[in-house]
Design a binder for these strands. Structure first.
Lengths: 203, 203
DNA sequence: GTCCTGGCTGTACTGCGAGTCCAGTTGACC
DNA sequence: GGTCAACTGGACTCGCAGTACAGCCAGGAC
């Protein structure tokens, strides 16, 4: 077979799909090895235990999400050089992307692990923390750039505003999962977009 | 002993504390019965299985949260009759309440169950759904009242705006849990408050 | 050509927690 | 004195995580 993806990646692919669908604890190693067509011994050869699997999944997921944001806002920047409009376009693209996912966004691994964190060791929890702090820094930077051009109509804490991007997405995904609707996250992002339009006044 | 709280409630109290601290799956029936000082048989006498426990916990939690919102916005209404200011005061009270919780808010059961939903049966998932739809209705009503007095500066979907209250709280709690900080949720609520101030213009 | 190593397979085992079954106890109230 | 609700306690099954280890096989080093 030419689909000779290395076994480790195959395990991660199967595991990620299963975990996003039904949660980490509800995903058994049994079904992962069945899906990846390997033996249980093979699984434990690659991952010491489920914690090691969780860490590897989080690392991959965070890298992918960061790459996605890089790409999204790079495309936005090409369309408009103004920092506010770049942000607004980027959020629109993000909302569209979330909406286009056929069965809705699978849900964020970050929130999922945050709510089951006692299952994980310190390494996993720290990865989670670092990812959110990374997004805070990213968006805080973008908002500061905007604030240099547009005077905010109300004083806001820039760290908190940076966090709000993550928070709105995470919160939207929670609603989406619980309601079994499909566009809550994108609607929440669009509302946040109008917030930014109102907050950063035209000169 | 006069602390003769009936056993069922004692089980629910112990279980809720444990579940909020470390998640549903990570909480064993063993430790619940140990905490409640009953036998395993006694537990299963009250709850057919862990699902029944989850359903009972959710019902209690949702009732408590609804009562809290009722109280909060009733107090706000006493302080100011104007619907916008009532909303702003209520949100301030909510933010303060979240901040005052010594070890931070334990985290919302709704989000927690949303991310482990395959562990639960349809009844539990539906409770979850109904709770969020209830909050949507509650806040949507309040926003419509506001909109009759204050013209929104930008057109917004009122259902989505209603959801945003829940979403911002849930999202904030996710951040708080993952970051191990203690005031993210209240900061997010305060940011949402400034959104409302900007959105609903003075006449 | 052989040897070694990495990447597995397969089996057998321990231990934990959920859930079932059921027989027996205890106290309240009618 | 009988009945019922609210348990206790123990024995059991089942599924899943994790451990241990013996063996297999392909491919590169020498």
């Amino acid at each position: 077979m030419d689909q000779k993806i290395d076994t480790r990646s195959r395990i991660l692919n199967i595991a990620e799909a299963a975990v996003l669908e039904k949660g980490f604890e509800a995903t058994s190693i049994e079904e992962i090895v069945a899906g990846a067509e390997i033996s249980r011994g093979g699984f434990f050869y690659h991952f010491k235990d489920k914690n090691a699997l969780a860490r590897a999944m989080l690392e991959r997921y965070i890298d992918a999400e960061n790459a996605l944001y890089d790409d999204l806002f790079a495309r936005a920047r090409e369309l408009n050089d103004d920092p506010l409009h770049c942000m607004l376009i980027g959020l629109k693209l993000l909302a569209e992307m979330l909406e286009e996912m056929p069965s809705g966004h699978p849900g964020c691994v970050i929130a999922s692990t945050a709510y089951q964190d006692r299952l994980f060791d310190e390494g996993v929890r720290d990865l989670n923390r670092q990812a959110i702090l990374g997004w805070r820094k990213r968006f805080r930077g973008m908002f500061e750039e905007i604030a240099q051009v547009y005077e905010p109509r109300e004083a806001v804490n820039m760290d908190a505003l940076g966090d709000m991007v993550s928070g709105v997405v995470e919160g939207g995904l929670v609603l989406q999962r619980a309601l079994r609707e499909h566009n809550n996250a994108s609607e929440q992002i669009m509302l946040f977009r109008t917030y930014l339009k109102l907050l950063f006044a035209d000169k």
